[in-house]
Design a binder for these strands. Structure first.
Lengths: 206, 206
DNA sequence: TGTACATCAGTGAACGCGCGTTCACTGATGTAC
DNA sequence: TGTACATCAGTGAACGCGCGTTCACTGATGTAC
């Protein structure tokens, strides 16, 4: 009895490991191809399996895509956490530039994020997963603003800050007639303007 | 000779008028259907013509979509212009809420905007058209910040303000578990936080 | 006024494509006895 | 150790669909003489 349980365990672990390999392949494809052009066939090719095999591991395309995104969201969360927890007076300019830089370097996650934000047809259970990732970032920004001694409630500030940084990423990503380098500089510049406007003391009660 | 010119003129005006009817039909479809689901066939059906006829008036799908978007962008530009020109001390809170409200009520334009911002495969000539519309908004925000006596250069502020408002629209549009009304209130609330952070005086030289 | 011809908006049918997903099958591995 | 059976990962082929775009044709309108 113990034996069969262990065997089943090994088996299910193998399954999870193969799932993970598919997700990694998906991330590599997303890094190279615009989100809306990525197909199940692309990912299968990258993973070195038949496209029909994907369906042994994921019930449908949407589930796979959401899992791939959550990987990236987790990394962002980890990075911000380290940055904010490690100091008693975190540098908001640094934080905004890390966030923006990460999502410029890993454009695939930003594409996925905007896709999911725009897509109205997500299953409720998927939405909840994405939302948990978002809440984690809000929580960290809350910590940031608390450490910066902003007046309560800081949650609204966190929402506004997060939204504003996302806005920078979407608004200037295809800034025409600029090199990638120049776009990058401009985004960081604008993110800096935003960080500064969030760090300034505001007249109380206004 | 004069005669034929006039006839040709009438003819080309008729053509433009029919083009405009197709664009209007497209806008109606966009208002009802997610951007990425709208097809040439949908628009033709709405306009009451055969889908093959579209190609008498537009070389391809992209051209039609861009024209449809520019209609909406023009309206936003007009609205902001009125608002900012009409006062010597414009209300930035009012302006942010008008902008956000317009793009919530006319969600199709926001969808198109984000689509074009994310799409890397636009023809250069289309990009230029879209960019002109964007510049017009930047110019108006420049006026706003100048009237608010912000230190030069105000262009960066305009960029940051525009980006931040767009960020609010994309970040909270599918805020889960909220009614449309609650989402609306939340967006306006966050847009208010942003407007406020842009209207506060910031320490000079910081 | 009548006739032959040119133009061109409008169209239904078809083309070619890529997609997500399912199906029926293979073959390797493990299990029961 | 050997044999019959069960499981299930993996697969190539196929299904069914919707799309953007093109084609060959019609028919209304205008032009030339």
């Amino acid at each position: 009895m113990k034996q069969t349980k262990t065997f089943a365990h090994v088996k299910s672990e193998a399954k999870l490991a193969r799932q993970a390999l598919i997700i990694e392949a998906a991330e590599r494809v997303f890094a190279v191809k615009p989100f809306n052009k990525v197909s199940i066939r692309d990912i299968a090719r990258e993973a070195g399996i038949s496209h029909a095999s994907i369906y042994r591991y994921f019930p449908d395309q949407q589930s796979l895509f959401v899992e791939a995104f959550l990987q990236g969201a987790g990394e962002i969360g980890d990075t911000l956490e380290k940055l904010i927890e490690s100091s008693d007076t975190p540098d908001i300019l640094k934080i905004s530039s890390v966030y923006v830089t990460y999502l410029m370097d890993n454009d695939q996650y930003f594409r996925m994020m905007t896709h999911f934000m725009l897509d109205g047809s997500l299953a409720a259970e998927k939405i909840e997963k994405l939302n948990a990732a978002e809440r984690r970032i809000f929580d960290q920004f809350d910590r940031l603003f608390k450490k910066l001694k902003k007046p309560e409630p800081v949650r609204l500030l966190s929402h506004a800050f997060f939204a504003a940084l996302n806005g920078v990423l979407i608004t200037f990503r295809n800034y025409p007639g600029r090199t990638t380098k120049a776009v990058r500089r401009h985004m960081l510049n604008i993110a800096g303007v935003i960080a500064e406007s969030f760090s300034a003391d505001r007249p109380a009660g206004k």
